[in-house]
Design a protein around this nucleic acid. Structure first.
Length: 325
DNA sequence: AGGCAGACGCGACTCCCACT
DNA sequence: AGTGGGAGTCGCGTCTGCCT
């Protein structure tokens, strides 16, 4: 290829200025330098680009053709440089997120709204397919950040602790187990357990019921919190959900919740990402947003003799109606 | 006078090769 | 593999002649 960007700038400047001397002033080069350049490119292309008419440089048809390309290419280069500047400033890019639990998608959109105000040109993509194994998705480079609660750790990933939430057993108001201060695994033996996730993926089953050798009479998988609440309310079964998920219903008094085991069952949430990958500014900002708001997402306070009560603060209002597709 | 183009020289850069 | 030096190349500037 004979044509270079300087040749495109040259032909554009000469065509617009009408002379090599004026073009030289615009390009901060001498008339002679541009004359050399022009002769060089004309020789390489084997065609005249300008007709020398007295003291004016007039484009030939070949010159007209090259000028059209020069406009296109130089404009595109200008746009590219502008885009690269944005990327260099890390104001533009893609942030791919997934979580290890579908229920997080309840409060995540609210957090993303705040993030979008800070980084309007960052395209946030929620990769729902990675929910089943966000660790592997991170290692495969399919996502940039995962919200995880699994105690399993991978040494190729780093984990930033965020918050702890409590899994509780939810019951209808007139359920006989309401008399208990907490629920033991064996109390669920004769119950119809309605779970948000599949039994083999369920945190409570894996951490408490299975180790205790307890297999409830019946287990159903309903991937809709509102449906689980309605079924529990109707006395069809009992559920196990994170306390903050059912906070509005608990406050409204339509269902009740009891800790699972004497000490309760808690999940420790972390933000996971690749250990040896640079953290762009927008990702760092999102992490900070998570860390700052994790206290707001689920703040528990001890009340004398009563179970922890969840408080959802306005910054991230989880009561927004949101249902997973 | 003003503008273009050619001859020549300079500095920066690249390539190649020898050396450590 | 890394470093340093010499040769060649390229792009540009100065000077100058030619043309209108």
């Amino acid at each position: 290829m004979n044509l270079e960007v300087r040749h495109l700038k040259l032909i554009k400047s000469i065509a617009e200025e009408g002379s090599v001397t004026k073009a030289g002033s615009r390009l901060y080069l001498t008339q002679s330098a541009l004359s050399h350049q022009l002769r060089d490119v004309e020789q390489k292309l084997g065609v005249s680009l300008f007709t020398r008419m007295n003291k004016r440089m007039v484009l030939t048809p070949a010159g007209e053709r090259l000028l059209a390309s020069a406009h296109t290419v130089l404009d595109e280069l200008k746009r590219t440089e502008e885009d690269l500047r944005h990327i260099a400033l890390e104001r533009e890019g893609i942030l791919r997120i997934s979580t290890e639990c579908y229920t997080c998608y309840h409060w995540l959109p609210s957090l993303l709204q705040i993030f979008h105000h800070q980084f309007p040109r960052i395209d946030v993509q929620i990769v729902v397919e990675a929910t089943r194994n966000p660790h592997q998705a991170l290692l495969d480079g399919k996502i940039d950040l995962a919200l995880v609660n699994s105690p399993v750790r991978n040494n190729k990933l780093i984990y930033k602790p965020l918050f702890r939430d409590e899994m509780v057993v939810i019951l209808s108001k007139n359920h006989h187990l309401n008399a208990r201060p907490f629920i033991n695994p064996e109390d669920l033996l004769n119950e119809h357990l309605i779970l948000y996730t599949k039994p083999e993926e369920n945190y409570a089953l894996k951490q408490v019921l299975s180790p205790a050798g307890v297999s409830p009479k019946r287990v159903s998988n309903v991937q809709l919190t509102e449906a689980i609440v309605e079924m529990v309310k109707a006395g069809i079964g009992v559920g196990i959900l994170s306390r903050w998920t059912v906070s509005p219903q608990l406050e409204a008094g339509v269902i009740s919740a009891l800790p699972l085991t004497r000490n309760g069952l808690f999940r420790d949430w972390s933000a996971a990402m690749q250990r040896h990958k640079a953290t762009p500014a927008y990702l760092a900002a999102f992490l900070k947003l998570l860390a700052d708001n994790s206290v707001l997402i689920m703040k528990t306070e001890k009340k004398s003799g009563k179970a922890n009560k969840l408080k959802l603060l306005k910054a991230v209002d989880c009561t927004d109606s949101y249902t997973r597709a």
